[in-house]
Design a protein around this nucleic acid. Structure first.
Lengths: 127, 127
DNA sequence: CCCTAGTGCAACCAAGTGGTTGCAGTTCAG
DNA sequence: CTGAACTGCAACCACTTGGTTGCACTAGGG
């Protein structure tokens, strides 16, 4: 998503959601990296943590992790708060709804096999 | 998704979650570009088309569009078929289920606000 | 058969990404 | 106060990415 900023998109998509495409760019872009997804999962399961702490359990340097955290934060998936000399990051998963929104909305243009998608979405923890 | 090699995803994705991270990389990566999302939407709403045709309605060259189509195809979102001297691309949205799967699964780790996500999933196009 | 429309490379380029190292600034503990 | 532990920049590097141009190849149509 390098030279992407304001690209022209057809108005054919005049229906739902419409989280401006830039947001989707950074959102999907943030999600497109395994390290970043790992960080999100980690922060979700083990709670808020600092870049330094997170870096300890990876082969990456603190700075690399920091950059990832910042990418995630700029996508709205994280927030940070300072506590003393530490900076703790936590997940703010709301933007994920935009992603799911776009996907479902888009797939909705499609045939009827969308039903499979819908069912899938609902079968994650129940059946 | 730069240093990530292209992976092929099995069509046996009846089970959503755990789609191996490489597939999610290319999937989210493919979705992280507005031009690419535009192409998917276009192909969905107006049906299959060739790279040349698609390029006519954008400021980009045929080759640029072609590259995007190939990225989408390697993410499993498109398939192409030759017909005479034309090559027609069509959307194969199944992989989107993986994306939704990961998101819902991940967000499921979270609190209970996941409910909002769930509701969103079910309210996009209540046809 | 020859011409044309359409596809398929491959080279090339600028800018973006993921990652590193090094160092300066801050905050807490003795 | 002094030092250790953290955070915050900034420079730098190799590799990817999105895009271009140019040209060879292929399939049909007159």
């Amino acid at each position: 998503m390098n030279r992407a900023s304001a690209k022209i998109l057809p108005k054919t998509m005049a229906k739902t959601a419409r989280v401006d495409s830039g947001a989707l760019d950074t959102l999907f872009g943030a999600l497109a990296d395994p390290t970043r997804r790992m960080l999100v999962e980690r922060l979700l399961t083990k709670g808020p943590a600092t870049a330094t702490t997170l870096a300890e359990t990876t082969p990456l340097t603190r700075q690399a992790i920091l950059k990832h955290l910042q990418v995630l934060e700029s996508a709205g998936l994280l927030a940070h708060e300072r506590s003393g000399r530490e900076v703790r990051y936590r997940v703010t998963p709301q933007p994920l709804a935009s992603a799911v929104g776009w996907i479902l909305d888009t797939a909705g243009q499609w045939d009827s096999r969308i039903d499979r998608l819908r069912r899938l979405s609902g079968s994650e923890s129940s059946t």
